[in-house]
Measured scan of single mutants.
Amino acid sequence: KCTICLSMLEDGEDVRRLPCMHLFHQLCVDQWLAMSKKCPICR
């Protein structure tokens, strides 16, 4: 589950894993990281 948009991560979707190993939709986390340089879970 992407904790930014709260939707399930589905096969075939573009996802991004951060160095902390948390996984998000690529678009969601890219937009998040443009505003904050910290993982939305770890922050």
Rank of each mutant, 00 (worst) to 15 (best):
K1N: 09
K1W: 04
K1I: 10
C2R: 01
C2W: 00
C2P: 03
C2M: 01
T3D: 07
T3M: 10
I4L: 08
I4S: 02
I4M: 11
I4C: 04
I4V: 04
C5E: 00
C5Q: 00
L6P: 02
L6H: 14
S7K: 15
S7Q: 09
S7A: 14
S7C: 09
M8F: 14
M8I: 11
M8K: 13
M8T: 13
M8W: 11
M8Y: 12
L9G: 01
L9Y: 03
E10F: 07
E10K: 13
E10A: 11
E10G: 11
D11P: 06
D11I: 08
D11E: 12
D11V: 07
D11N: 13
G12E: 11
G12Y: 06
G12W: 06
G12L: 05
G12V: 06
E13F: 01
E13H: 05
E13T: 11
E13R: 12
D14H: 07
D14A: 12
D14R: 11
D14Y: 02
D14C: 07
V15M: 12
V15F: 11
V15C: 08
V15Q: 11
V15R: 08
V15N: 04
V15K: 09
R16T: 12
R16L: 08
R16P: 03
R16C: 14
R16W: 08
R16A: 13
R17H: 07
R17Q: 08
R17G: 07
R17K: 12
R17W: 06
R17N: 02
L18N: 00
L18K: 02
P19A: 07
P19K: 05
C20I: 04
C20F: 00
C20L: 00
C20E: 01
M21D: 14
M21S: 14
M21Q: 14
M21N: 14
M21L: 09
M21Y: 07
M21E: 14
M21K: 15
H22T: 01
H22A: 01
H22M: 03
H22N: 03
H22Q: 04
H22G: 00
H22D: 02
L23G: 11
L23T: 14
L23E: 14
L23W: 08
L23F: 14
F24I: 06
F24G: 15
F24H: 05
F24A: 13
F24R: 04
F24S: 09
F24K: 03
F24C: 11
F24L: 09
H25Y: 00
H25C: 04
H25N: 03
H25K: 00
H25T: 00
H25E: 01
H25S: 00
Q26N: 12
Q26D: 09
Q26S: 12
Q26W: 05
Q26I: 03
L27Q: 14
L27C: 10
L27V: 13
L27H: 15
C28K: 01
C28G: 01
C28Q: 01
C28D: 02
V29D: 04
V29K: 04
V29R: 06
V29C: 10
V29P: 03
V29L: 12
V29G: 07
D30K: 09
D30V: 06
D30G: 09
Q31W: 03
Q31R: 13
Q31S: 12
Q31L: 03
Q31N: 09
W32Y: 07
W32R: 09
W32V: 13
W32I: 11
W32N: 12
W32F: 08
W32P: 09
W32L: 14
L33K: 06
L33W: 08
L33E: 11
L33H: 08
A34Q: 09
A34K: 12
M35A: 14
M35Y: 04
M35L: 11
M35N: 09
S36H: 11
S36C: 08
S36P: 04
S36R: 07
S36Y: 11
K37F: 05
K37G: 11
K37C: 02
K38Q: 12
K38T: 08
K38N: 10
K38D: 15
C39N: 05
C39T: 05
C39V: 02
C39I: 00
C39R: 03
P40Q: 06
P40L: 03
P40G: 03
P40I: 06
P40K: 01
I41L: 11
I41E: 15
I41Q: 15
C42Q: 04
C42F: 02
C42L: 02
C42M: 00
C42P: 04
R43K: 15
R43W: 15
R43Q: 15
R43C: 15
R43T: 13
